[in-house]
């Protein structure tokens, strides 16, 4: 039976009365990168901890490699790597010792090939020259690089990174992006990352899941979110009456006008053609000065989504009182 690498179905997690996750569902297959996006306290880390088997969902079904991660955490971790933020290391050990032991814990022993791979990975994250320094003297960015190094050693089938770009310089972020792409494309690794950096998400991921107050408010490719945020923007020149008449005429023609202010009119993309808009304006004595599709940045589209979710009544944002069930 084929499973997605990661399956979350109606996952709910409560901490006392507070609902951290309110029925989240998402999947991740191999060779895909999924970004988990949302404001602080939206439930991202809670979801990652559930996937790591650190927390149990109050209800709902969570499967990693087809297994319950809380009950079979050690088996899940054979093929999964997690790097949580902020990266926590043993300050008294060196970077090389840390990696040697973490690899050895999984393998039972560390042979010459493993040692060569450790050096190679340390080199690839830019830590080879500091490999024998104790972690206590590492900067936050270096600790983050070490977190990435341990996460890809050995190459997993599932890689989960919590805020992997935090503390990294722009060059390191570029390198990280290249590493993640290579893991996905060459090794077929499924990658789940939580991030605040929308440029990162836009350029890297296949799918993004947006969490807001524990609810999933968007789950799809970033292009879809961008498309949803696109609109047609028209500028009409003329007296107030003329502009109002033109807009009224457009509505009569079945055009959905989303917003209008000072002669500027926004409407969904494809609502009207340039020729038709010009004709209607002309008929009412107005001049069509601008006609263009407005493409928001991913950040703006996300903020728009979040704003909409915030304005929605609580019942529709998933803050119900779920009860414990066994849905798996």
């Amino acid at each position: 039976m084929n499973h997605a690498i990661l399956e979350v179905d109606g996952a709910v997690r409560r901490f006392g009365k507070r609902i951290a996750l309110a029925g989240v569902s998402l999947n991740l297959d191999s060779r895909k990168i999924l970004a988990l996006v949302g404001p602080n306290g939206s439930g991202k880390t809670t979801l990652l901890k559930i996937l790591a088997g650190f927390l149990k969902p109050t209800s709902g079904c969570v499967r990693v490699f087809g297994m319950d991660p809380f009950a079979f955490r050690a088996r899940v971790m054979v093929d999964a790597r997690f790097a949580f933020a902020p990266p926590a290391w043993y300050p008294q050990l060196t970077a090389r010792e840390t990696l040697t032991f973490l690899v050895g814990i999984g393998n039972g022993a560390v042979d010459r090939t493993d040692r060569a791979r450790i050096s190679h990975v340390l080199d690839s994250v830019g830590l080879l020259e500091r490999a024998d320094d104790r972690v206590r003297v590492f900067s936050f960015g270096m600790r983050q690089r070490l977190a990435l190094a341990q996460a890809i050693l050995p190459t997993p089938k599932l890689l989960v990174l919590d805020e992997p770009t935090d503390g990294l310089d722009p060059l390191a972020i570029l390198e990280l992006r290249a590493v993640l792409r290579r893991l996905r494309d060459e090794h077929g690794v499924a990658i789940l990352l939580s991030s605040h950096l929308m440029t990162e998400v836009e350029h890297l991921v296949d799918t993004m899941a947006v969490l807001h107050e524990g609810s999933l408010i968007f789950n799809g490719p970033p292009t879809e979110l961008l498309r949803d945020g696109q609109c047609l923007r028209l500028a009409l020149d003329g007296t107030t009456d003329v502009v109002a008449r033109t807009i009224a005429l457009m509505r009569e023609e079945g055009v959905v006008v989303a917003h209008q202010e000072n002669g500027y009119v926004t409407m969904p993309v494809g609502s009207i053609t340039l020729a038709h808009a010009g004709k209607l304006a002309d008929r009412c004595g107005a001049v069509l000065k601008e006609f263009h599709e407005q493409r928001p940045t991913l950040e703006a589209a996300l903020l728009d989504r979040l704003r909409t979710a915030r304005e929605r009544p609580p019942s529709s944002s998933g803050s119900t009182t779920p009860s414990r069930t066994d849905e798996c």
Binding site: A52, G53, F54, R73, A74, R75, M77, V78, R81, F82, A83, F84, P86, A88, W89, Y90, L102, I105, G106, Q150
Partner: peptide, 15 residues
Amino acid sequence: AAGTIHTLLARPLSR
């Protein structure tokens, strides 16, 4: 307290 329990538990090690 140091958060390193996550580092250990994120490896194939039984409790």
